[in-house]
Amino acid sequence: MESLTFRHTTKTPLPGTQPSAVTGVVASGNLEVLLERVLPPDACEVAIDTPIAGYGDVWAAVVADFVARAQPGGIRISINDGGARPDTVSLRLLQGARLMEA
């Protein structure tokens, strides 16, 4: 297992009041994303546990892209990965952000 953590500063906090949300399932080619509104409003942290080592650069790019698009300020994101492709990861992150905005 490989653990990765990325920290970003955002321009705005993520809208909404939902304290936490979870989306996805840990299965082959899929992943589980847990979002918690526990950080300062301009901070975002993404922590990943993945069984597939050596893809830190890809994760970094996917997370940076998500942060730029969603501006998820205040949110700590925890990921249990089952070997998902980058497009699946992006989809789940955006799904999670939408649940938090609801």
């Binding site: 989306t23 996805g24 649940l99 938090m100």
Partner: peptide, 8 residues
Amino acid sequence: MAGDRAAS
């Protein structure tokens, strides 16, 4: 906890 597409 908001679940998978809970509202819809």
